[in-house]
Every structure is written in structure tokens, then in C-alpha cells.
Design a protein around this nucleic acid. Structure first.
Lengths: 172, 172
DNA sequence: AATTAAGGTTCCATTATGGAACCATGAAAG
DNA sequence: CTTTCATGGTTCCATAATGGAACCTTAATT
């Protein structure tokens, strides 16, 4: 399977990664969440080549994760800003940060820290169950088939439905 | 900058993505969290070529995100299992799922649903402040320089420290 | 008139990836 | 006891993605 075919998979991770899962795109989004909006600033910050950046920004705009706006009409200059869809990617970004701060820093510690304005504390994100507020872990969750698969199976659209039996609940 | 140099950046997202940020690796981890452990099952599930899978699994083992264990000594067969470091990547994965379920599904809905065993509910993950339990959004957080940058700046190790002024607090 | 800045595009060499074929080990089938 | 099958790979080659440098366009500044 070629990478440009993975969005055909019935999987939210696969479909999400088809938009943001290549080299550079998530780093561009990181910069967006740090307030970077302009082509040149992305380039300085990332050290990405211009045509690659141009290509990635265009794709993010096509995916409606970023929007391109003129910010100086006389001058014809643009800024790239997060849409609602893009802004809601923030939990993914902060989860990456939390993991990286723990598992991918040197002895100096976290490069950035985050103040949660409403409570004023230095914050780390906690990923919790929206019902009981307990932290989620891989061992406390059972995945079950959802409508996105079951409805298609009913209509006979899932060629590889047999593959589903590869997936088992994960065990300690 | 080439991709294999991004782990030199003082940024938790960049360093994390240097391990898992290429095509395929996060999809392999998704499968790990769904209980897939064997070479052939990864291949069936993902449709990835064997040498690419082999390369990715080796890199994940080198990063200590997966461990390779013999599960049948007579037969000489292996399974790839998440380490503690790997298991703690779960919040990233579930945040991706949550985003994808909202922004990257068709009209049928979510492909998989998740039962939170302790409370028995169908769950979605909520990403919250670990102090006040409020949901975090990009607009309620102010990033500040942390020790990972400040200590290096003190020691004069940050060549591109000027670039920091590209980053502003994000505004609505 | 020349230089600078923003925001790109074009060209080409290098690197990564996909597809197919092949290989080694041990088990099972005939 | 020879063939076939399953697992878990590696090798080879053509195609696709990426990096680096040069160039382009518009408008402002020196």
C-alpha cells in the first residue's frame, strides 16, 4: 500500500495521519500553536526548505486545518492561521509535549513550560476518561467495533473484515 | 535541515517526532495498542512492505518504545511488545483517535469505540489541566521558556536563541 | 539604481519507499 | 523422506519524496 492510500482505511488514526502524519507537518502545527503565522518565520524556525514548506502549508489549507489570510493588503503578504479544526488538534500536540518532556529531553529538562491561565499553575496535560475523570491507560480500555465499521460490514463494503480478528484487547 | 537532524532541536515535539514522526511508525504503534505483536500481523493489518516494517520495528526497538521477545523458543518466533515508554504513548494515540473521530470520519461515525473498564462507559478522552481539571485549549495556555532552554542559554550553547522571539502567545 | 524583504517556484542530486522476488528455519502433510 | 506451508525476514530495482541551491516577482528602502 502506498502512503497516499492510507486514508482509505477505516481508522481514525490512519485518516488523521494521512493529513498530518508525514515529516514536518506536525512541526509546522507546533509552530502554529506557538503563534507562528508567516512563511518566513516557519522557515527560520524549522529549517525546512521553501518548496517543502510551501507544499505542506498548501496541504494543511486544503485539509482546512489552516486558513491563509492576507494581513497586509497593500503589501500582499499572508498569514497562516489555525481553523477550528486545527485548534482542536491542541490535545494531540500537548500529549506529544508531555511524552517528549518525560522521555525525550536531556538532563536540563523541559524546553518549554506551560502556564494554565485560568488557574495560574505550571501545567501538564492529563488524559482522562470524560465520564469518571480517571486517567486512561492502555490496560483499562477495551476497544469495540463502532458504527464506522459495523455499518459498512452490514452493507458488505469491508473486503478485509477478517483482518479485524488480528486485534485483541491488549494485555499486561 | 535534513529530517535526521531534527532531534538536535531543543523541542520535545521535534525530539518525539524524530522517533515516531515518519510515515508508518504511528500506525505501527496504533496496532500495538490494539494488541498486535507479530511481524506478519502488522504486515496484514497495515499493508506495509516487509523491509519497511522490518526497518521501523528495529528503530522502535532501538528507541526502547518496543521490545522484541522470543515467544516460542523451539520455533524461534518473535513478538514486539510495548515497553513502559511505549505504553505511555497511549494519550497521544487516544488524542489522535478523538480528533480523527470528530474530523476525519465519514457519515457512519467512529470505526472503533472504547469502553473504559473501571467505569464501564463508552469513553472519549478529555485533555485537562492536571491542577484544576479544566479542559485545555490553545487560548488558555501561555508557553514560557523552561530549564531545557534557559540552562543551555546560560551556558551559551544556543546558537539560534534569537529565533525564540518568533514565538508569541497565540491569540484568538 | 541597487538592495532588502516576503513569499514563493524551478532544477537537480540524494534519500526513502513500494513491489516483487528470494532466503532460512522448522513444522506439517503426503 | 520429499514437498509444502508459515514465519520472519533480506536483496534488488524502479519510482516517489526530499534537500539544497538558484532564481523569480512585487513592493519598499537606501
Amino acid at each position: 500500500m502506498r502512503w497516499d492510500e492510507i486514508d482509505s482505511q477505516v481508522c481514525s488514526v490512519a485518516r488523521t495521519l494521512s493529513m498530518v502524519g508525514d515529516r514536518w507537518t506536525m512541526l509546522i502545527l507546533r509552530d502554529c500553536f506557538l503563534g507562528v503565522t508567516r512563511f518566513t518565520d516557519f522557515q527560520k524556525s524549522l529549517g525546512i526548505t521553501k518548496h517543502r514548506l510551501s507544499d505542506r502549508l498548501t496541504k494543511l489549507v486544503d485539509s482546512e486545518i489552516l486558513k491563509k489570510q492576507v494581513y497586509d493588503t497593500n503589501y500582499g503578504r499572508y498569514e497562516y492561521k489555525l481553523t477550528k479544526k486545527g485548534l482542536e488538534f491542541y490535545p494531540v500536540m500537548m500529549s506529544l509535549v508531555a511524552w517528549g518532556d518525560k522521555w525525550a529531553t536531556d538532563e536540563d529538562g523541559a524546553p518549554l513550560e506551560y502556564i494554565h491561565k485560568p488557574c495560574g499553575n505550571k501545567m501538564q496535560v492529563a488524559t482522562q476518561c470524560n465520564h469518571c475523570d480517571e486517567p486512561v491507560t492502555a490496560f483499562t480500555i477495551t476497544p469495540i467495533l463502532g458504527p464506522g465499521i459495523l455499518e459498512k460490514a452490514k452493507r458488505g463494503e469491508l473486503v478485509d473484515f477478517d483482518n479485524q480478528d488480528i486485534y485483541k484487547s491488549i494485555k499486561q
